[in-house]
Simulated scan of single mutants.
Amino acid sequence: MAKQCNVAVVGATGAVGQQMLEVLAERNFPIKELRLLASERSVGKFLEYNGEQHMVQLLDKDAFEGIDIALFSAGGARSEEFCPIAAAAGAICVDNSSAWRMDPEVPLVVPEVNPQDIAQYGKKGIIANPNCSTIQMLVALKPLHDAAKITRIVVSTYQAVSGTGRNAIDELRIQSGELLNGRPADCEVYPHQIAFNCLPHIDVFLDNGYTKEEMKMVNETRKIFGDDSIGVTATTVRVPVFYSHSESINIETEKKLSAEQARELLANAPGVRVVDDVANLEYPLAVDAAGQDLTLVGRIREDESIANGLNLWVVADNLRKGAATNAVQIAEIVLEKYL
């Protein structure tokens, strides 16, 4: 019989939590007991998993007894409080918040990039899921980095509203309807209208003029690649798209990589699909990435302004590969190698 384990999903009623349930079912994760955990306001609700209804239970200090793997997607404050409790009860935690990402004793993992770092989980019993934008970027850049060593990354993101949560999805939908019918749009989730607009502002602004989201991409990239010498600069933008983040990425490398060499490397890379036939107007689109787990890469071309530069357009589903699927992939490795 295949190895099975007891799994808790923390924040099960949220957008990412429900996506985790879908991904667990799709990938036939071998679950013996599934425990859905959330705050008091969600206790007693029922969620479907694999055709069966499961009741949501209260997230408290006694919720993790007998749990082997705990998938967290309940926000940073909950993760800071309950990951140590779950780990003390014997669970290995995979946390989707930003709470533990830069902790030197917690591995920050993209399975296609640095799966070996999962072995470090024992220091705190926690493995961190990176930021959604970092995940898709590094899935695309890993084979290029291995081949030619990336020295600098300039990235601009175009991020879907689902990255903010269900209320943001509703805000874009409602604002679009109001504006198309000649009525003013109310702003509650974002500081400005998001419908038919772009906001160069994700998370809070820091003293250096960057946003917290931008600095996450900088710091997480260096940690995952294990190289603090890589120059990284980011501009993150919220756009009126429901699902899937898009990124314009420019890299400089130590060794020359032609566009054709890059395409070949990416065509053979795990988790990547090259969509790059401009003669037929084929390139990565958010609508094509939504609902699946591959990172789409296209518009691959040499940067003619520098000696060793490439430009890429990278798109992935932020709720799946950018969150739920990455966490479940980590859990699969944990189950296979560490339980």
Rank of each mutant, 00 (worst) to 15 (best):
V275C: 06
E252W: 03
A91H: 05
R166M: 03
L21C: 07
I306R: 15
H245G: 13
E188H: 08
E52P: 06
I249G: 04
P111S: 09
S162P: 05
T164W: 02
F196Y: 07
P84S: 10
Q19W: 00
V43K: 11
V334E: 05
Q175F: 01
K123F: 02
E254H: 06
V139Q: 04
R173A: 06
I194A: 07
C5L: 12
T151G: 09
A290R: 15
G182I: 12
Q261R: 10
I249H: 01
K123R: 14
I92A: 10
F82W: 04
L335F: 00
A88R: 14
Y210I: 15
K149G: 13
D68E: 10
A38E: 06
T134M: 10
P130L: 09
K124F: 00
P184W: 07
A87R: 11
R152A: 10
N28R: 06
R173K: 08
P104L: 14
V161H: 02
Y338R: 15
H201C: 10
L59I: 09
I224P: 03
K337Y: 03
G66T: 11
V106Q: 06
Y190V: 13
A8D: 03
Q136Y: 02
R299P: 01
H245Y: 10
P107V: 09
F196Q: 14
E178Y: 00
N280Q: 10
I150N: 09
N318A: 11
L180H: 15
K216G: 06
K149H: 09
Q4H: 15
R320D: 08
V297H: 01
V161E: 08
G163H: 02
P84W: 11
A8K: 01
Y121I: 08
R238P: 08
I127S: 00
A327F: 03
T235N: 14
R41F: 04
K32E: 14
V110W: 00
Q136A: 06
D203A: 11
R27T: 10
F46S: 15
A195S: 12
A119K: 05
Y158Q: 15
Q193K: 15
T233N: 13
L294A: 05
I126M: 02
A279V: 08
P240G: 14
E247S: 14
A324I: 02
E254A: 15
H145S: 07
K124P: 03
A77G: 07
D146N: 05
G177C: 08
N114L: 08
L37N: 11
G271T: 04
A259L: 04
Q292C: 09
A2D: 06
V241Q: 11
Y243R: 02
M102C: 04
L179P: 07
L59A: 06
D293K: 01
V278T: 10
V315W: 01
W313P: 13
D228G: 11
R35P: 07
I127A: 05
R183L: 12
A87D: 12
A128Y: 00
E26S: 00
I69R: 02
I174T: 05
Y190K: 12
T13S: 08
R78I: 04
G163I: 01
G11D: 06
K124I: 04
G226Q: 14
L179I: 15
H145T: 13
L206D: 15
A267W: 01
V106N: 06
Q193T: 12
I333H: 09
G177W: 01
E336D: 12
E252Y: 02
M20V: 15
A91C: 12
H54A: 11
D228T: 14
